[in-house]
Simulated scan of single mutants.
Amino acid sequence: MVDSFYDGSPYDQETVRFYDVALEGAQVRLVGGFMEDGGFRTLEGLKPRSVVVLVKGEIAHGCARLVEALHAPLRQPLVITATLPSYIGALDVLVVVTEDGGDEDALRALITADQRGSTSILVGPAAGPLIEEVPTDTVVVPTLPTAAGMSPARVVASISTVIDLFAEDPHIVAARLEHVAGYVNEEIEALSPERDELVNPGRMLRNWVEGHRVIHSGGSELGMAIANVMAPLWSRRGLISAVLDYPELVVSLPDLRGDNSGQHDIFYDPFLDDNPGVVPFRAVVWAEDEPGIPDAMAQQCDGPSKGPLASALRLLTRGQAATTYSVEEKDL
């Protein structure tokens, strides 16, 4: 997959930014291979009192919430927190998600959980003091050594795997991850920077939101979970945006759209004309076939029969890719 984007010629800026996106399918496949090799053996058939997911940052928090949506209704409580609960003990499973190789809080949490007999999993970076000093019984989920930043697909796949192994055969879970990885790679092919807006759904989305205030939303629990990952991820990468629950978005439309007289004048340029008012608004409605409201674009993927995890990770990958494209200025 990665080789198709690199032939030895110099990278352009879009290809450089797209690099981590191009690895998302491989990250999922790596989690599945780790399980096939017995990396998650201590979790198989476990029936914990609770699963505690310790996260820092809104993107990681959103990924954990997405897992919650994908597995609802849950067999055991899923506690998503930034602080280790005082009750953590031998009946609980701890999953720590961090991209900081020197995260001392994460290390203390893993040591505390280990001392109290908890099963612990680290979804962390490829290297750093944290990786070197974790307790020997902690399951360290591997990552691709060349990846530069957090992989939402890896985080979601890892937490999902932990939950699935409490009730499913590990070979079934591994086969599912292999299937999901292939589906994500199909999306990555469609999102290649070499493909233009007519055939690239990520570039189409990026161009559509250019020059607008953006609100992410979803008409379902899954759509809202994806929106809660996308808003901080886009903002972190320079596409400042926010998230609203769909009913809140509908109620807020008059205020969000503001004075529409200029927005619908085909000769009106909000950046060149006098008194442009507010920057125009657009919404992205995730995991829906139709947006259902004006000034909005729906994001859905084909093949729901491939499973909710595959569809969710495909949409996450598309949202990531949208932040990597350049927007060419159009001639007036």
Rank of each mutant, 00 (worst) to 15 (best):
P308T: 11
Q13T: 10
V279P: 07
Q13I: 13
L332M: 11
E329G: 09
F267I: 06
L91E: 13
A227L: 02
A287Q: 08
R318F: 03
A174R: 07
D295P: 01
P10R: 11
G219I: 05
L66Q: 09
V284S: 01
R237S: 02
A322Q: 00
A287N: 15
L122H: 12
V139P: 01
L205Q: 03
E328A: 14
V279T: 15
A69E: 05
G102C: 07
A231M: 08
A109Q: 00
R203A: 10
D20I: 09
R108G: 02
T119N: 01
T324C: 15
G292R: 12
A22Q: 04
D265Y: 08
A157F: 08
W208E: 11
M150K: 09
R41F: 03
R17S: 08
V156Q: 09
G202S: 02
Q299I: 13
P232D: 01
D37S: 14
P125C: 11
L191Y: 05
P291I: 06
D7Y: 12
A148H: 11
D255L: 14
V214W: 06
A322G: 00
D92E: 06
E189I: 12
G182M: 09
P152N: 05
L91G: 02
K306R: 15
L46I: 00
A147S: 15
E104G: 06
V140E: 08
D103G: 08
P85N: 02
P280K: 06
E221I: 12
S220P: 03
P280S: 10
F18K: 10
D92Q: 03
R213F: 13
I215M: 12
V79P: 05
N275D: 14
Y19Q: 08
V243Y: 06
L222G: 10
G25S: 13
I80Q: 04
G8E: 04
A157V: 06
D274M: 04
V52R: 02
I188N: 05
D331Y: 12
A64R: 10
G303P: 01
